[in-house]
Amino acid sequence: MALNPLHQFKVEALYPLYIGGLDLTITNQALWTGVATATILAIFMAGVARMAIVPGRLQGFVEVTVEFIRNLTRDTAGKAALPFLPLVLTTFLFIATLNLVGMIPHSFTVTSQFTTTAFMGLMVFLLVMGVGVYTQGLHFFAMFLPAGTPWWLAPLIVPLEIISFLARPLTLAVRLAANMVAGHVLLKIFAGFCVMLLGLAGAESSGLSWSNISVLSPMAVLPFALLIAITALEVFVALLQAYIFTVLTLVYLNDALHGH
């Protein structure tokens, strides 16, 4: 039984696939991204398949989710940000679903991979830059010099502001990936405690048998109880991290739309 808590984050090639010199190998990362995307599509298409005036459960869920993100968009970034609702909603659903799918045992947590989160951070960065330059023109770059800065401080403040601005997408990516990695490592470690206390960790043990049971074996109940609690916490963190990513995207979008 593999007790290495980091083994679960290994990206493995499942189906080698080369098209025209391009390496399009299906890895477990790509596979579970696809599973999550298909899940979102299935739920939302089923939810809006029969539009009832009195919504059923699935339609109600879809409507509540969309309304929640729409209100969040309007309250955080203003009415001008509502055209970006499809993007914001997709971001939230994508991250939330990837996080939740990662909670299924034997699945793969795609958001624990920095490549995935880094591209999402890059997307937000390009979005903010594009929207900022589009709506404010070159005045957008005036945010690198906050109002009221003494002229002799400007050579110091401008590099600091540029660094802060560039650090934002990196923070988004690092926060999401680090939270998912930390949570899943914690789960694996506590699950490992249970296994070890039951005497199943050795290479020679082939299953639960009396020869493996020791005085300490009943103690396995303690990490197991904690494991259940941490699992609940991780489901909460999965949703919270998607929420935080969305809110911060909206905060940056607000800066780009309305100036700092």
């Binding site: 209100n71 309250d75 955080t76 919270l240 929420y243 911060l248 905060v251």
Partner: peptide, 10 residues
């Protein structure tokens, strides 16, 4: 909804 410039909890 958190106000802009207020980082959300977490």
């Amino acid at each position: 909804a958190p106000q802009p410039d207020n980082p959300p909890p977490g």
